[in-house]
Write a protein that binds this DNA or RNA. Sequence first.
DNA 1: AGATTGTTAGACAAATTTGTTTAATACTCT
DNA 2: AGAGTATTAAACAAATTTGTCTAACAATCT
Lengths: 207, 207
Amino acid sequence: MTQKKDAKNKKQQILDAAEYEFLTNGYEATKTTQIAKRAGVTHAMLHYYYQSKENLFNKIFEDKIETLKAPIDALAQNKDIDLRDRIREIIELHFDFLKTHPDLPHFLINEMRSNPQLIKILREKVGDTLRGTFATIQTEIDEYVAKDIMKPISAFDLFLDIVSLNVFTFISLPIFRHIAYNEEKEQQLIENRKKEIIQTINYRILK
Amino acid sequence: MTQKKDAKNKKQQILDAAEYEFLTNGYEATKTTQIAKRAGVTHAMLHYYYQSKENLFNKIFEDKIETLKAPIDALAQNKDIDLRDRIREIIELHFDFLKTHPDLPHFLINEMRSNPQLIKILREKVGDTLRGTFATIQTEIDEYVAKDIMKPISAFDLFLDIVSLNVFTFISLPIFRHIAYNEEKEQQLIENRKKEIIQTINYRILK
DNA sequence: AGATTGTTAGACAAATTTGTTTAATACTCT
DNA sequence: AGAGTATTAAACAAATTTGTCTAACAATCT
């Protein structure tokens, strides 16, 4: 039952290779032969462990949904910090999360677009948490607005503003990458965007 | 040489079908047989007119780049209106453009990601215009900033803020669509986003 | 040592996909 | 009427892709 030999067992290697291929190329453009090649195993092994391409993809997709849950759960936990500081923290957390997972948004959006069934899966996994968080934050916002220290905004709009600005930074990066001439400059460009996004949201909500 | 029969000649029908299929499913997931089926012609006709799938795709891609040039050129023409009003106009123009072409951003981003050669083509077609426009607008911004009627911002950041917010509205629409229960509510949701985006940018730049 | 599991290499089948070709027919123009 | 173009239907080839299967060997466990 247990794996033998080297720590990095073949089953995991296949999963890692599949993750790379699916996230880089999407479902359709990914070939199982290429996954096997990247994993350094024979093509037969892939089917031995994961039966089908679709099954292997679903494993990756579900794993990526789990990955996405982390920042959403972080959003949900109501820390005892001034809302305005917390929003700034959330932006930074989400932005840094994307820095670690730059291909994730495009992967999810792309696959959900070509297979709407996957949208349902996402909603089942994070829908409730998200709705609850929106409700909580909306209450907080309204309190701050009543105290005249915040501009009115719906939690949904605020969420979408932040996600739009953060996600699009990384979705559009392949297109704007050439503006930065080396890795260091690119990191600088990314950090500049982060500051700009925080500033934009702050101007949007602070009075 | 000329086409005969009905106005909607087969050659054009194939192009239309290809546009639909490529924009909806992307290059890899699109099958030439499906294009032929949608166009209502035999599979042989597709190759008769367009030789190969790749050739047909390139036609569509270049056509979509041309489509994208419209709002970029609109951005370039320096109308004699107060910058602050012009920015608002640009946001609305771009947003409404996306309403008419909701699949365009995802299509371009997706295909450029899987084929970086296409990024070069985009840059060749719109790079110069965009750089020039950025320079012009930056000068204007700086004047307004000097007069203390605008907050400082780089033209590039402003551009990216607007594009991020506008584009992500439509990229994420398939995921958030269920929030609206019918077509009317969906249009309402979209119009609300438009207002929110204008507001956000205004707070970001106006003093 | 024997049983079980992991692994390879390779052959193979079935389906799909792209692209070509041919023969026949219809339409359009001069 | 005849030439040329548009179009269909269908057969076909070649390549790719997914998936199965088998025979052999290696590693591990009991």
